[in-house]
Amino acid sequence: MKARDVAVQGVLAGVALVAAFFVWQREPSRAPGEVTVEEGQASSLDRIRYDEETRFVELLRDPQDRDTLWVRLGSKPAKPGAGAGTTDGGVADGGSIVTTDTDAGTPASPTPVPPPRELRGNDVALKLFSRLAPLRAQRDLGVLDDKKLDEIGLAKTERGLTLTLDGTPRTFRVATPASGWGPPYLQRTSDGHVFLLGPALLTDLEAAASRLVDRRLHTFDVDGFDRVVITTGTTSRAFAASGKPPGAVQLSPENAPGTPDDFARNWHDRLWRLTPVELLGRGEAPPGPAPTPAFRVEYQRGGKAVGELSMAKTPDGSWYARTEFTPGWARMGGGLELLAEDAVKLTSPR
């Protein structure tokens, strides 16, 4: 190849890189008529907080990996005379229970607010950062008088949105419609301007526990490991594993790799298809003493560990699982005694 041809190719490659850079920097396209409420890029958005009267939701980036998100679900102290309920995150609304008056006419002390629950955010949570930075609305209604603010639910609202961009919080008030539903109006606190948001912009935050939490036990599928080690007590047994999703993984005793074990395959398939009933947060433990695993499963590939699962039963009869991916223990459904009994059979000497 001639030197001139090499130079031309180098110039073309440089132009392509510059073009790619500007495309990456360009703001996402906006719908016709949209207005910008708050400038910013998703990469600069550090934290999202959504407040309601009795609870709050926060989405925050992991300090070690900004692409890893945590969803924090918390309750607020109940106001005097307010009843207690349950949020979609499994935390009591308001975090406290207000009891009826005592015989002396003095209300009982409320239960302390439980600490917030921190769970892993899913892909929907990650995409929400791009939807909120820059923050856009359908219309800018300008500064409204008190009567109009009251009509659209902004006069006495306790709902709010806070976007922390490059360490600086930007606060907004979110309307509370009188009928419980209606157009999502938002007021920018810095200048009082009111905006009409898109109809689905805040839906994910309102149902954060069901829409933004990653409920997976593992990030790999049945083709992500080639060896399974099952342990009960001090006894372990290893199996060679092979499989392709969505089917069940085939397990063969390591000392007899050409002899598939149907009992082991069916047992593991039941285990693999379990889903959590409730996810506990980072640093949150099941009630009672520390759980003692009834059995443990380790997943390996190429001689290296890729994941593990421990299953334990608490004194109240509940079953909890913990894996390499869950932030803590996860409460499972009942009826897992047979699964634990079969794990003992699988690891028994043969």
Rank of each mutant, 00 (worst) to 15 (best):
Q9Y: 06
G10D: 11
V15Y: 00
A19H: 04
A19S: 12
F21L: 14
W24R: 15
Q25L: 15
V35M: 06
E38D: 01
G40E: 08
S44V: 03
D46E: 13
R47V: 09
D62G: 01
R66I: 00
T68S: 15
A78S: 14
P80Q: 09
G83W: 02
A84D: 07
G89I: 01
G90N: 09
G90T: 03
T99I: 00
T106H: 04
A108Q: 12
S109W: 00
T111D: 05
P116C: 10
E118H: 11
R120S: 07
G121W: 05
D123H: 10
D123R: 14
V124E: 14
L126H: 12
L135Y: 07
R136W: 07
A137R: 02
R139L: 11
L141I: 05
D146T: 11
E151D: 14
G153F: 08
A155R: 13
K156G: 05
E158D: 12
V174F: 10
A175V: 07
P177L: 11
A178V: 13
S179M: 11
P184N: 01
D191M: 06
G192W: 02
H193T: 11
V194D: 07
V194K: 03
G198F: 14
A208C: 05
A209P: 12
R215E: 08
T219F: 06
I230W: 10
T234E: 12
A238L: 06
S242G: 13
Q250L: 13
S252M: 09
S252P: 04
P253S: 05
P253L: 02
A256W: 08
F263R: 12
F263D: 09
A264Y: 07
W267C: 04
R273L: 09
E278G: 02
P286E: 09
A290L: 09
P291I: 03
P293F: 02
P293W: 02
R296M: 04
V297K: 02
Y299P: 04
G302K: 06
G303D: 06
K304C: 00
V306A: 06
W319T: 01
R322V: 04
T326C: 01
L339D: 10
L339R: 05
K345Y: 01
P349N: 11
